[in-house]
Simulated scan of single mutants.
Amino acid sequence: MSEVWVFHGAGSRFTSGIFTSRQQAEEFIQQYQLSGILTKYPLGISAYDWAQQEGIFQPTKPEQYTTGFIQRFTSASQEHYHYEDGKCDA
């Protein structure tokens, strides 16, 4: 499955960069000494559908089928890294 790396800066509502490799993303993060989260996302499928497909999440409550829930859905099972001032906290 194809994937991308998405960087969300600390306190940001929107993505500040999408990259084809973790290395490319980390170069950007380190260059500007950024803080935030770098997450790997599969292409062509939502995080909500991907988590169900992988058996990581199954909706069990009515609210988990709502648009509000689906549009905010993320999974801690997605590979992700935290950065502070350009350095990975891993």
Rank of each mutant, 00 (worst) to 15 (best):
R13E: 15
H80E: 06
K40M: 13
W50M: 01
G17T: 00
A90I: 12
H8M: 14
P62M: 04
I45S: 01
Y32S: 11
S46I: 01
Q31R: 15
G55W: 03
E84G: 08
H82W: 13
G11K: 05
L38S: 02
A10E: 15
H80C: 07
Y32C: 05
H82I: 13
E3Q: 10
G9Q: 15
V6S: 01
G17V: 01
T74F: 02
I45N: 00
G36W: 01
W50F: 09
V4H: 10
S35E: 05
Q33I: 06
L34P: 02
P59C: 02
V4E: 11
I56L: 12
D85C: 11
Y41E: 11
G68A: 13
S75E: 03
S35C: 07
C88G: 07
E54Q: 15
E26N: 08
K40D: 06
D85N: 15
Q58P: 00
T39S: 09
A90D: 15
Y83G: 06
K40P: 08
F57K: 00
C88H: 03
G11L: 04
H8E: 11
T15W: 00
Q53M: 14
T15Y: 01
L43M: 13
F14Q: 13
I29K: 03
P62I: 03
Q53I: 06
F73P: 02
F19D: 03
Y41T: 03
H8S: 10
K87G: 06
T15R: 09
R22S: 09
Q52N: 11
S12V: 06
G68T: 10
S21I: 04
Q58L: 10
S16L: 12
F73V: 01
H8W: 10
Q58C: 05
F19N: 02
D85A: 14
E63A: 08
M1P: 08
K61F: 07
M1E: 09
S12K: 10
T66G: 04
I37K: 13
E27M: 12
K40E: 13
S21K: 05
G36N: 05
K87N: 11
P59V: 00
Q33V: 07
V4A: 09
I70N: 03
H82A: 14
I29E: 06
L38F: 05
G55Y: 04
Y83M: 03
D89P: 04
H80G: 03
Q24R: 13
Y65C: 00
M1I: 07
D49H: 07
Q78A: 13
Y32M: 09
A10Q: 15
K87W: 09
A51Q: 02
G9K: 12
S16F: 11
A47V: 10
E63N: 12
Q58K: 11
D49F: 02
A47R: 06
Q24N: 12
C88R: 14
Y48Q: 00
H80Y: 05
E63R: 11
Q78Y: 09
S46A: 03
E3N: 12
T39M: 06
W50T: 00
F14Y: 14
L38P: 00
I37D: 09
Q30R: 15
Q31E: 15
Y48M: 00
G86K: 02
G17S: 04
Q78I: 04
I29M: 07
T67A: 15
P62N: 08
Q31P: 06
S35G: 09
T66W: 01
G68L: 10
R13F: 14
D49P: 01
I45C: 00
C88W: 04
I29N: 03
